[in-house]
Design a protein around this nucleic acid. Structure first.
Length: 662
RNA sequence: GCCUCCCUAGCUCAGUGGUAGAGCAACGCACUUGUAAUGCGUAGGUCGUCAGUUCAAUCCUGACGGGGGGCUCCA
């Protein structure tokens, strides 16, 4: 047998000419695929002299994707074995798992999951080998005649650039056969691959949920049934993932909003319209108050604008042209009719505002502006109404009525870079004050197909944004062509306590509105110039930020935001008067404190306070009373005994004023 | 908007083609000594709304409203 020279993980070796990576890596159980000359390939691939082979382990990002994609195949095989009339869509890996789209004879229900999972376990136990087979378009169409969606993909192959490329991308059209114990194919699927060597390399998986999805992501296409699953290199990692999901569910702001009596969405008001209850109101006001103070310090001026406006304003701004779908329909006022019902006098159309910027532009335009006034920073907690499609609402994070912490900055072109730089610093520091610490930035650049403004302006603005972003020393992700048509933007993405990413602030340069509103200022040389306009929201919406913080803190807000900062719990009734005095001193010191004077037992009071996630439980019994002290119990169960009253008050006040978590 | 599942007491949820139950919360009474549930009792619901089928509907059908999970969308 002749030998060939290849490179394996950087080491030159000679191997038999018919050696496959399966054999080369046979001692390394964690290697599930490999790269040959930089391209991801099955371990069953043939090798040629001079090939550079690199191992890819199951835990690497690429290995995980392959694991999950292979698990999707196993699921599809299981589904077709149980529901024989089911047609296949596509089945790519996604973050943490995979899905496969099916066109079944009836929708799946949760009971089906058990059947499918047990069929999958059997396939995994069988150790079916994934075998790659190159085919031609005409052969594939013949073989897959009973799979209309696959045939459509084959037809699309030339132009594939979307998800479909998982199935048919790459230079060759390939089918993967799953080989049974006898080496004969038991199931096949059109697929680019690569795959695990065999189904027995799937260590841990679980089907998560079924849902509908449009075929190839278009509303115009038929709905398929999608089953989501997750797959991991070890059972432990699967368990950890499921625990994370359970944790996320416990933190869900909609659930906590109810449990902690923060807000609700009364059906009578309408979908996506929240009311804040007193406790939620305290949190919200604390959030707003602090933001207001910081904005004042940064040179913002506070303005107010109405919730309603005549149509003309949104005609000027252009919103009615390209955004009317997202607006509540107009109210028509003062319309008069003839007796036959025809219109005698046309009415006035009024709209709820979906944005604040046109109002701020009118404030700018209310009188002549001088360059000396710039940058002019107009800030408003502006409540806007957007008619979101019914299916997209999600608690406070996606609502129909919400309040933006909205500001518009009008400055000269020369001022723009410095303004963007200080603005981004301000944004990030403010978010840090609210307890978010882990950020990355996204820069959205021009889509030349769909944009207004001249090249030079775009380049200048984009570079200014980029420099401001780079100065922050944070990870910067480029969103090429992702900008809105009217200007480039930076968005701040924040990670919460359990690692989920939320889009928070946006800073957007606008070339469109200053022109549409004919905004001008007088420059030093007496000429009239058009200002640069920057839109920015730090929280995005207060409601949404409220929801994000609720989930970030899991409802256990830091004292400065907590609706109740301290609750007094007497060990027994006899100490209630003593503690009542302590609590009243705390109230005088500006602390949100109450005495729990109910006739529950102490243990019950502790439990109640714990469930309300109150940061300081102030407990007093005989020992404390004798010493003129109190005891703290914190939310983590720790306690501190015999704290003199003055010191206890000072500790709470310090936690509040320094905005630290306890 | 589309697919799918759901809506029973303030909350979490049982349940039945013959108009309903539990736990917690609320209220009352008694109890009260050190860090996550004291006991007993009382009250509370046109079973989301409106139609239809039926001798009879909370239960079956449909429409509407609200919600969950996705898809699409998020200027």
């Amino acid at each position: 047998m002749s030998e060939i020279s290849i490179t394996v993980d950087g080491v030159a070796v000679n191997v038999a000419a018919d050696q496959k990576p399966t054999q080369i890596f046979s001692e390394r159980k964690d290697v599930v695929v490999c790269k040959v000359n930089g391209e991801l390939r099955d371990l069953w691939s043939d090798l040629a002299a001079g090939d550079v082979v690199e191992s890819v382990t199951i835990s690497s990002p690429e290995g995980l994707a392959v694991l999950r994609h292979s698990t999707a195949h196993v699921m599809a095989q299981a589904v077709q074995s149980i529901f024989s009339g089911t047609r296949l869509g596509i089945g790519p890996p996604i973050t943490d798992g995979f899905y496969y789209d099916f066109d079944p004879e009836r929708p799946f229900n949760p009971d089906d999951f058990e059947k499918i999972e047990s069929a999958m376990r059997k396939i995994i136990k069988d150790g079916q080998r994934f075998k790659r087979r190159i085919t031609t378009e005409s052969d594939a169409l013949k073989e897959l005649a009973h799979e209309p969606y696959k045939c459509e993909l084959i037809g699309l192959k030339s132009g594939a650039g979307d998800e479909a490329s998982v199935e048919v991308g790459g230079s060759e059209l390939t089918i993967y056969d799953n080989l049974g114990r006898d080496g004969q194919p038991v199931w096949s699927d059109l697929c680019r691959g690569p795959h695990l060597p065999s189904t027995k390399h799937i260590p841990a998986f679980k089907l998560m949920r079924s849902a509908a999805a449009y075929w190839r992501g278009s509303e115009k296409n038929p709905m398929l049934q999608r089953i989501y699953g997750t797959a991991w290199p070890t059972q432990e990692e699967l368990t950890a993932h499921l625990e994370l999901l359970a944790e996320a569910e416990k933190r869900d702001h909609r659930r906590l909003g109810n449990e902690l009596d923060l807000f609700s969405f009364p059906e009578e008001i309408g979908s996506g319209l929240a009311v804040f209850h007193p406790k939620g109101g305290i949190i919200r006001r604390a959030m707003e108050d602090y933001s207001r103070i910081r904005h004042e310090e940064e040179g913002y001026e506070f303005v107010y604008s109405p919730h309603l406006t005549k149509a003309a304003l949104f005609e000027t701004s252009g919103h009615l042209d390209w955004y009317s779908e997202g607006m509540y329909p107009p109210m028509i006022l003062d319309e008069e009719h003839h007796p036959d019902g025809t219109i005698k006098k046309a009415g006035q159309q009024y709209y709820m505002k979906p944005m604040n910027c046109p109002f701020h532009n009118l404030i700018f335009r209310a009188r002549g502006r001088s360059y000396r006034e710039l940058p002019l920073r107009l800030f408003e907690f502006g409540t806007v109404y957007r008619y979101e499609k019914s299916g997209v609402m999600h608690g406070l994070t996606r609502a129909r009525g919400f309040t933006q912490d909205d500001a518009h900055i009008y400055c000269t072109k020369e001022q723009m870079p410095a303004e963007l730089d200080s603005l981004l610093t301000f944004v990030l520091n403010l978010l840090r004050d609210y307890g978010l610490n882990d950020f990355y930035l996204e820069l959205s650049t021009r889509n030349p197909e769909k944009s207004v403004g001249d090249d030079k302006d775009w380049t200048e603005a984009t570079e200014a944004l980029r420099k401001a972003a780079e100065a922050q020393k944070l990870q910067l992700v480029l969103d090429e062509g992702g900008a809105a048509f009217y200007g480039p933007k930076i968005s701040v993405q924040a990670k919460d306590a359990i690692g989920r990413t939320w889009q928070m602030s946006t800073i957007q340069v606008d070339f469109q509105l200053p022109q549409r509103f004919e905004l001008e200022y007088s420059a030093a040389d007496g000429t009239r110039q058009r200002p640069v306009m920057i839109h920015r929201a730090l929280f995005g919406s207060i409601e949404r930020f409220f929801g994000v913080l609720t989930e970030h803190y899991s409802g256990a807000f830091p004292p400065w935001l907590a609706p109740m900062q301290a609750v007094g719990i007497p060990v027994a009734d006899a100490f209630a008067d003593y503690l009542a005095d302590v609590i009243s001193q705390m109230k005088k010191a500006g602390i949100r404190a109450e005495l729990d004077a109910s006739d529950d037992r102490m243990q019950k009071k502790v439990r109640n306070a714990q469930m309300q996630k109150i940061p300081f439980m102030v407990i007093a019994g005989e020992e404390d009373q004798k010493a003129g002290a109190v005891s703290f119990r914190y939310r983590n169960g720790e306690q501190k005994n015999g704290i003199p009253i003055a010191q206890a008050i000072a500790e709470i006040k310090e936690a509040v004023s320094k905005r630290i978590q306890v």
